[in-house]
Design a protein around this nucleic acid. Structure first.
Lengths: 144, 144
DNA sequence: CCGATCCGTCAGAGAGTCTGACCAAGCCGT
DNA sequence: ACGGCTTGGTCAGACTCTCTGACGGATCGG
Protein backbone atom coordinates (compact mmCIF):
# COMPACT_ATOMS: atom_id res chain seq x y z
CA UNK A 1 0.00 0.00 0.00
CA UNK A 2 2.80 2.40 0.77
CA UNK A 3 4.67 1.87 -2.47
CA UNK A 4 4.34 0.40 -6.00
CA UNK A 5 0.53 0.65 -5.98
CA UNK A 6 -1.09 -2.72 -5.43
CA UNK A 7 -3.88 -3.95 -7.63
CA UNK A 8 -6.53 -3.00 -5.07
CA UNK A 9 -5.58 0.66 -5.13
CA UNK A 10 -5.30 0.55 -8.91
CA UNK A 11 -8.91 -0.60 -9.06
CA UNK A 12 -10.08 1.95 -6.54
CA UNK A 13 -8.75 5.04 -8.29
CA UNK A 14 -10.86 4.80 -11.47
CA UNK A 15 -13.84 3.59 -9.48
CA UNK A 16 -13.72 6.65 -7.30
CA UNK A 17 -13.35 8.88 -10.33
CA UNK A 18 -16.41 7.32 -11.95
CA UNK A 19 -18.46 7.64 -8.80
CA UNK A 20 -17.54 11.28 -8.35
CA UNK A 21 -18.52 12.09 -11.92
CA UNK A 22 -21.85 10.32 -11.65
CA UNK A 23 -22.75 12.12 -8.44
CA UNK A 24 -21.76 15.48 -9.81
CA UNK A 25 -23.82 14.81 -12.92
CA UNK A 26 -26.85 13.62 -11.00
CA UNK A 27 -26.74 16.66 -8.76
CA UNK A 28 -26.62 18.90 -11.81
CA UNK A 29 -29.59 17.04 -13.31
CA UNK A 30 -31.79 17.74 -10.33
CA UNK A 31 -31.04 14.65 -8.27
CA UNK A 32 -28.97 16.31 -5.59
CA UNK A 33 -30.67 14.50 -2.73
CA UNK A 34 -28.87 11.28 -3.48
CA UNK A 35 -26.05 10.13 -1.23
CA UNK A 36 -23.39 7.52 -2.04
CA UNK A 37 -24.73 5.21 0.64
CA UNK A 38 -28.23 5.41 -0.78
CA UNK A 39 -26.89 4.74 -4.26
CA UNK A 40 -25.07 1.60 -3.17
CA UNK A 41 -28.38 0.15 -2.06
CA UNK A 42 -30.39 1.60 -4.93
CA UNK A 43 -28.10 0.01 -7.52
CA UNK A 44 -28.87 -3.44 -6.23
CA UNK A 45 -32.62 -3.28 -6.67
CA UNK A 46 -33.66 -5.99 -9.11
CA UNK A 47 -35.91 -5.09 -12.08
CA UNK A 48 -39.00 -6.54 -10.41
CA UNK A 49 -38.12 -5.29 -6.95
CA UNK A 50 -36.06 -6.70 -4.10
CA UNK A 51 -36.61 -7.56 -0.47
CA UNK A 52 -34.94 -5.42 2.13
CA UNK A 53 -33.02 -8.36 3.53
CA UNK A 54 -31.67 -9.26 0.10
CA UNK A 55 -30.62 -5.71 -0.57
CA UNK A 56 -28.74 -5.59 2.71
CA UNK A 57 -26.92 -8.80 1.98
CA UNK A 58 -25.98 -7.78 -1.54
CA UNK A 59 -24.80 -4.36 -0.48
CA UNK A 60 -22.81 -5.85 2.37
CA UNK A 61 -24.55 -3.92 5.14
CA UNK A 62 -26.91 -4.89 7.94
CA UNK A 63 -30.63 -4.92 7.32
CA UNK A 64 -30.99 -2.11 9.82
CA UNK A 65 -28.76 0.13 7.74
CA UNK A 66 -30.53 -0.93 4.56
CA UNK A 67 -33.88 -0.10 6.12
CA UNK A 68 -32.63 3.29 7.14
CA UNK A 69 -31.41 4.09 3.63
CA UNK A 70 -34.54 2.76 1.93
CA UNK A 71 -36.61 4.98 4.21
CA UNK A 72 -34.73 7.97 2.87
CA UNK A 73 -35.01 6.79 -0.73
CA UNK A 74 -38.73 6.34 -0.27
CA UNK A 75 -39.13 9.78 1.25
CA UNK A 76 -37.28 11.27 -1.72
CA UNK A 77 -39.51 9.41 -4.17
CA UNK A 78 -36.80 7.20 -5.64
CA UNK A 79 -38.34 3.92 -4.52
CA UNK A 80 -41.63 2.54 -3.28
CA UNK A 81 -42.54 -0.46 -1.13
CA UNK A 82 -45.17 -2.90 -2.25
CA UNK A 83 -46.31 -6.22 -0.77
CA UNK A 84 -44.43 -9.24 -2.03
CA UNK A 85 -46.92 -11.53 -3.79
CA UNK A 86 -44.64 -14.51 -3.18
CA UNK A 87 -44.27 -14.05 0.59
CA UNK A 88 -46.85 -12.43 2.76
CA UNK A 89 -44.33 -11.38 5.37
CA UNK A 90 -42.17 -9.46 2.98
CA UNK A 91 -42.43 -6.28 1.01
CA UNK A 92 -40.64 -5.50 -2.22
CA UNK A 93 -38.59 -2.38 -2.69
CA UNK A 94 -39.16 -1.17 -6.23
CA UNK A 95 -37.77 1.69 -8.27
CA UNK A 96 -40.37 4.44 -8.44
CA UNK A 97 -40.94 6.96 -11.19
CA UNK A 98 -38.39 9.48 -10.00
CA UNK A 99 -35.90 6.69 -9.43
CA UNK A 100 -36.30 5.52 -13.02
CA UNK A 101 -35.58 9.02 -14.26
CA UNK A 102 -32.40 9.18 -12.18
CA UNK A 103 -31.29 5.84 -13.62
CA UNK A 104 -31.76 7.28 -17.08
CA UNK A 105 -29.66 10.31 -16.17
CA UNK A 106 -26.87 8.27 -14.63
CA UNK A 107 -26.75 6.01 -17.65
CA UNK A 108 -25.84 8.99 -19.78
CA UNK A 109 -23.10 10.12 -17.44
CA UNK A 110 -21.60 6.66 -17.20
CA UNK A 111 -21.56 6.41 -20.97
CA UNK A 112 -19.80 9.73 -21.15
CA UNK A 113 -17.06 8.69 -18.72
CA UNK A 114 -16.65 5.34 -20.44
CA UNK A 115 -16.23 7.18 -23.72
CA UNK A 116 -13.43 9.24 -22.21
CA UNK A 117 -11.72 6.15 -20.94
CA UNK A 118 -12.07 4.49 -24.33
CA UNK A 119 -10.52 7.54 -25.95
CA UNK A 120 -7.58 7.35 -23.59
CA UNK A 121 -7.01 3.60 -23.70
CA UNK A 122 -8.17 2.79 -27.19
CA UNK A 123 -11.19 0.62 -27.96
CA UNK A 124 -9.28 -2.65 -27.85
CA UNK A 125 -7.82 -2.21 -24.38
CA UNK A 126 -11.07 -0.82 -23.00
CA UNK A 127 -12.83 -3.94 -24.19
CA UNK A 128 -10.09 -6.04 -22.67
CA UNK A 129 -10.43 -4.26 -19.37
CA UNK A 130 -14.13 -5.01 -19.21
CA UNK A 131 -13.57 -8.60 -20.20
CA UNK A 132 -10.92 -9.20 -17.58
CA UNK A 133 -12.97 -7.52 -14.87
CA UNK A 134 -15.97 -9.64 -15.79
CA UNK A 135 -13.86 -12.74 -15.40
CA UNK A 136 -12.56 -11.54 -12.09
CA UNK A 137 -16.10 -11.11 -10.94
CA UNK A 138 -16.50 -14.86 -10.85
CA UNK A 139 -14.20 -15.12 -7.87
CA UNK A 140 -14.79 -11.74 -6.22
CA UNK A 141 -18.55 -11.23 -6.35
CA UNK A 142 -19.86 -13.23 -3.41
CA UNK A 143 -23.38 -12.90 -4.62
CA UNK A 144 -23.46 -14.26 -8.19
CA UNK B 1 -26.14 0.47 -12.76
CA UNK B 2 -29.35 -1.49 -12.63
CA UNK B 3 -28.47 -3.76 -15.51
CA UNK B 4 -25.49 -4.96 -17.61
CA UNK B 5 -22.95 -3.90 -14.99
CA UNK B 6 -21.17 -0.69 -15.88
CA UNK B 7 -17.43 -0.37 -15.68
CA UNK B 8 -17.58 1.42 -12.36
CA UNK B 9 -19.29 -1.47 -10.62
CA UNK B 10 -16.98 -3.91 -12.35
CA UNK B 11 -14.05 -2.09 -10.79
CA UNK B 12 -15.66 -1.88 -7.40
CA UNK B 13 -16.37 -5.59 -6.96
CA UNK B 14 -12.77 -6.82 -6.97
CA UNK B 15 -11.64 -3.78 -5.02
CA UNK B 16 -14.09 -4.54 -2.26
CA UNK B 17 -13.03 -8.18 -2.26
CA UNK B 18 -9.39 -7.21 -1.89
CA UNK B 19 -10.15 -4.76 0.90
CA UNK B 20 -12.19 -7.29 2.81
CA UNK B 21 -9.44 -9.88 2.57
CA UNK B 22 -6.78 -7.46 3.75
CA UNK B 23 -8.82 -6.35 6.75
CA UNK B 24 -9.67 -9.89 7.73
CA UNK B 25 -6.03 -10.85 7.44
CA UNK B 26 -4.81 -7.86 9.42
CA UNK B 27 -7.31 -8.55 12.17
CA UNK B 28 -6.11 -12.16 12.33
CA UNK B 29 -2.51 -10.97 12.53
CA UNK B 30 -3.18 -8.85 15.60
CA UNK B 31 -4.03 -5.56 13.91
CA UNK B 32 -7.73 -5.58 14.63
CA UNK B 33 -7.85 -1.93 15.68
CA UNK B 34 -7.56 -0.71 12.13
CA UNK B 35 -10.57 0.80 10.38
CA UNK B 36 -11.02 1.32 6.66
CA UNK B 37 -11.09 5.07 7.11
CA UNK B 38 -7.81 4.99 9.02
CA UNK B 39 -6.29 2.80 6.35
CA UNK B 40 -7.21 5.19 3.58
CA UNK B 41 -5.16 7.87 5.29
CA UNK B 42 -2.40 5.56 6.43
CA UNK B 43 -1.80 4.31 2.88
CA UNK B 44 -0.98 7.79 1.71
CA UNK B 45 1.84 8.47 4.12
CA UNK B 46 5.01 9.07 2.13
CA UNK B 47 8.19 7.12 3.02
CA UNK B 48 9.73 10.09 4.82
CA UNK B 49 6.48 11.24 6.39
CA UNK B 50 3.69 13.54 5.25
CA UNK B 51 2.01 16.68 6.50
CA UNK B 52 -1.51 16.42 7.76
CA UNK B 53 -2.77 18.86 5.16
CA UNK B 54 -1.20 16.86 2.35
CA UNK B 55 -2.66 13.62 3.64
CA UNK B 56 -6.10 15.17 3.76
CA UNK B 57 -5.84 16.42 0.22
CA UNK B 58 -4.57 13.14 -1.14
CA UNK B 59 -7.18 11.09 0.65
CA UNK B 60 -9.90 13.46 -0.51
CA UNK B 61 -11.09 14.42 2.96
CA UNK B 62 -10.93 17.59 5.03
CA UNK B 63 -7.96 18.25 7.23
CA UNK B 64 -10.22 18.01 10.25
CA UNK B 65 -11.17 14.46 9.34
CA UNK B 66 -7.57 13.61 8.61
CA UNK B 67 -6.54 15.00 11.98
CA UNK B 68 -9.18 12.92 13.69
CA UNK B 69 -8.00 9.73 12.01
CA UNK B 70 -4.32 10.45 12.58
CA UNK B 71 -5.10 10.97 16.28
CA UNK B 72 -6.50 7.45 16.38
CA UNK B 73 -3.61 6.00 14.43
CA UNK B 74 -1.20 7.70 16.79
CA UNK B 75 -3.03 6.39 19.83
CA UNK B 76 -2.87 2.87 18.41
CA UNK B 77 0.85 3.20 17.76
CA UNK B 78 0.66 3.00 13.98
CA UNK B 79 2.08 6.47 13.35
CA UNK B 80 4.01 9.18 15.14
CA UNK B 81 4.23 12.93 14.67
CA UNK B 82 7.58 14.65 14.44
CA UNK B 83 8.49 18.26 13.68
CA UNK B 84 8.95 19.05 10.02
CA UNK B 85 12.54 20.23 9.53
CA UNK B 86 11.52 22.05 6.37
CA UNK B 87 8.71 24.12 7.89
CA UNK B 88 8.57 25.14 11.49
CA UNK B 89 4.78 25.38 11.49
CA UNK B 90 4.22 21.85 10.36
CA UNK B 91 4.67 18.39 11.75
CA UNK B 92 5.26 15.22 9.78
CA UNK B 93 3.12 12.14 10.22
CA UNK B 94 5.40 9.14 10.00
CA UNK B 95 4.82 5.40 10.09
CA UNK B 96 5.83 4.10 13.52
CA UNK B 97 7.17 0.71 14.45
CA UNK B 98 3.83 -1.00 14.81
CA UNK B 99 2.65 0.61 11.60
CA UNK B 100 5.61 -0.81 9.74
CA UNK B 101 4.80 -4.26 11.00
CA UNK B 102 1.21 -3.94 9.80
CA UNK B 103 2.44 -2.87 6.37
CA UNK B 104 4.54 -5.99 6.26
CA UNK B 105 1.54 -8.13 7.15
CA UNK B 106 -0.74 -6.51 4.61
CA UNK B 107 1.87 -6.91 1.90
CA UNK B 108 1.70 -10.66 2.37
CA UNK B 109 -2.08 -10.74 2.21
CA UNK B 110 -2.18 -8.60 -0.92
CA UNK B 111 0.35 -10.88 -2.59
CA UNK B 112 -1.79 -13.86 -1.69
CA UNK B 113 -4.94 -12.37 -3.22
CA UNK B 114 -3.06 -11.24 -6.30
CA UNK B 115 -1.76 -14.78 -6.69
CA UNK B 116 -5.31 -16.11 -6.62
CA UNK B 117 -6.37 -13.63 -9.24
CA UNK B 118 -3.39 -14.53 -11.40
CA UNK B 119 -4.31 -18.19 -11.10
CA UNK B 120 -7.84 -17.42 -12.24
CA UNK B 121 -7.00 -15.03 -15.05
CA UNK B 122 -3.66 -16.37 -16.18
CA UNK B 123 -0.42 -14.40 -15.90
CA UNK B 124 -0.81 -12.65 -19.22
CA UNK B 125 -4.24 -11.16 -18.54
CA UNK B 126 -3.31 -10.26 -14.97
CA UNK B 127 -0.37 -8.29 -16.28
CA UNK B 128 -2.62 -6.67 -18.85
CA UNK B 129 -5.09 -5.69 -16.19
CA UNK B 130 -2.42 -3.95 -14.17
CA UNK B 131 -1.07 -2.24 -17.25
CA UNK B 132 -4.43 -0.92 -18.35
CA UNK B 133 -5.32 0.26 -14.86
CA UNK B 134 -1.99 2.07 -14.60
CA UNK B 135 -2.76 3.86 -17.85
CA UNK B 136 -6.21 4.76 -16.63
CA UNK B 137 -4.65 6.28 -13.58
CA UNK B 138 -3.30 9.09 -15.70
CA UNK B 139 -6.77 10.49 -16.21
CA UNK B 140 -8.48 9.36 -13.01
CA UNK B 141 -5.95 10.05 -10.27
CA UNK B 142 -6.37 13.72 -9.45
CA UNK B 143 -3.17 13.71 -7.44
CA UNK B 144 -0.34 12.50 -9.68
C1' DC C 1 9.33 43.96 10.39
C1' DC C 2 4.76 43.35 9.26
C1' DG C 3 1.10 41.69 6.61
C1' DA C 4 -0.42 37.58 4.22
C1' DT C 5 -0.34 32.86 4.21
C1' DC C 6 -0.32 28.42 5.83
C1' DC C 7 -0.65 24.48 9.57
C1' DG C 8 -3.35 22.51 12.54
C1' DT C 9 -7.12 22.46 16.11
C1' DC C 10 -11.68 23.38 18.40
C1' DA C 11 -16.71 23.16 18.31
C1' DG C 12 -20.92 21.55 16.61
C1' DA C 13 -23.70 18.89 13.59
C1' DG C 14 -25.30 15.28 10.56
C1' DA C 15 -24.95 10.86 8.01
C1' DG C 16 -24.13 6.05 8.03
C1' DT C 17 -23.19 2.01 10.24
C1' DC C 18 -23.23 -1.56 13.87
C1' DT C 19 -24.87 -4.82 17.87
C1' DG C 20 -28.49 -6.59 20.36
C1' DA C 21 -33.19 -7.21 21.27
C1' DC C 22 -37.58 -7.80 19.67
C1' DC C 23 -42.30 -8.56 17.30
C1' DA C 24 -45.15 -10.43 14.00
C1' DA C 25 -46.19 -13.29 10.38
C1' DG C 26 -46.16 -17.17 7.69
C1' DC C 27 -43.77 -21.56 6.23
C1' DC C 28 -43.56 -26.43 6.71
C1' DG C 29 -43.24 -31.03 8.83
C1' DT C 30 -45.80 -34.04 11.26
C1' DA D 1 -54.41 -28.11 10.35
C1' DC D 2 -51.55 -26.76 13.94
C1' DG D 3 -47.68 -25.39 16.43
C1' DG D 4 -42.81 -24.75 16.48
C1' DC D 5 -39.25 -22.70 13.92
C1' DT D 6 -37.65 -19.71 10.63
C1' DT D 7 -37.72 -15.39 8.45
C1' DG D 8 -38.81 -10.29 7.31
C1' DG D 9 -38.49 -6.21 9.28
C1' DT D 10 -38.31 -2.64 13.12
C1' DC D 11 -36.79 -0.27 17.48
C1' DA D 12 -33.23 1.58 20.54
C1' DG D 13 -28.77 3.06 21.53
C1' DA D 14 -24.12 3.84 20.47
C1' DC D 15 -20.04 4.66 17.78
C1' DT D 16 -17.33 6.15 13.66
C1' DC D 17 -16.53 9.19 10.07
C1' DT D 18 -17.24 13.23 7.79
C1' DC D 19 -18.38 18.04 7.01
C1' DT D 20 -18.74 23.45 7.70
C1' DG D 21 -17.26 27.31 10.03
C1' DA D 22 -14.19 29.70 12.93
C1' DC D 23 -9.97 30.39 14.94
C1' DG D 24 -4.91 30.63 17.17
C1' DG D 25 -0.44 30.64 16.27
C1' DA D 26 3.64 30.33 13.76
C1' DT D 27 6.36 31.54 9.83
C1' DC D 28 7.22 33.01 5.24
C1' DG D 29 8.44 36.60 2.18
C1' DG D 30 8.72 41.12 0.46
Amino acid sequence: MTEPLNTGVLLFLPYRAMEARVFAGLAAAGFADFTPAQARVFQRIAPGGSRLTDLAEQAGITKQSAGFLVDQLERSGYVERVPDPADGRARLVRIAERGARSVEASRGIVAEVEAEWTAHLGPRRMEELRGILSDLREITDPWR
